[in-house]
């Protein structure tokens, strides 16, 4: 067994530097790497580029990094729930590359799987396709999108073992598996870290080969953005 276990979030983030590009898993606040984000905020790292579907909310998730102006550029698909994000974007303080959600996911997966680029119909005929190569296949138009290049991926899983194998829970899975192995170093934080051999190999979502560092996360807040319930 090749161990990927590190003792702390500090150790997991060793080598993180100003100006780097990071991938961060999560959809809204669901499945975000809370521990890694908190450590990035505390480290005062700056001028970073973040690839993440959303940018958290004003006071949680990536919103914390935005608030401290640590982010130079965001690559996201949706910013609707974050007023500070929208303000920084409209004022030009923050560079933003809005990318269709499926394209964002595929740009991660392409990086993970070794594809330099792929064709997608998403965004054809819109400003997203401006300056990009387009091509017709079977009578339909497609846009050439390139794989992401990133220095670190920060992902969050439900369970993991020392070998770096990961299992996700519910819709907290989202972008996390696609980002594993898609950057030079993938850092996984988990709610429950177990010794190798305890997880059923049949149930592994992401094999440990895609993960370089894994650590036991702590104090998960798991905030709910829209608490919707029905009456009994």
């Amino acid at each position: 067994m090749i161990s990927k276990k590190v003792a702390s979030v500090k150790e997991a983030l060793d080598g993180v530097q100003d100006g780097m590009t990071f991938m961060l898993g999560g959809f809204g606040l669901c499945g975000i790497p809370e521990n890694a984000i908190a450590e990035l905020v505390a480290s005062n790292i700056k001028d970073i580029t973040c690839i993440s579907n959303n940018a958290g909310v004003d006071d949680f998730g990536l919103g914390l990094l935005l608030h401290k102006r640590q982010i130079k550029k965001m690559i996201s698909s949706y910013v609707g729930e974050n007023e500070e994000f929208e303000r920084q974007m409209l004022s030009g303080e923050l560079e933003v590359e809005l990318t269709p959600q499926g394209t964002l996911a595929e740009k991660c997966r392409a990086a993970q799987a070794g594809f330099p680029a792929f064709y997608t119909p998403a965004g054809y005929g819109t400003e997203v396709a401006e300056g990009k190569e387009t091509r017709e296949f079977n009578g339909k138009m497609y846009v050439l999108e390139e794989a992401f290049k990133a220095d670190f991926s920060f992902v969050k899983a439900w369970k993991g073992d020392e070998a770096g194998n990961l299992i996700f829970k519910g819709t907290a899975r989202n972008f996390n598996p696609c980002m594993c192995g898609a950057a030079k170093i993938t850092v996984a934080e988990v709610e429950e870290l177990v010794p190798a051999g305890e997880l059923d190999p049949n149930q592994i979502h992401i094999p440990g080969i895609f993960v370089q560092r894994i650590f036991q996360g702590s104090n998960y807040e798991k905030r709910i953005e829209q608490r919707t319930v029905r009456k009994r």
Binding site: S76, S77, Y78, G80, M89, V96, L98, P100, A122
Partner: peptide, 9 residues
């Protein structure tokens, strides 16, 4: 600007 989310796909 809300972003396109998954709408373009």
């Amino acid at each position: 600007v809300k972003g396109m989310g998954g709408a373009m796909d």
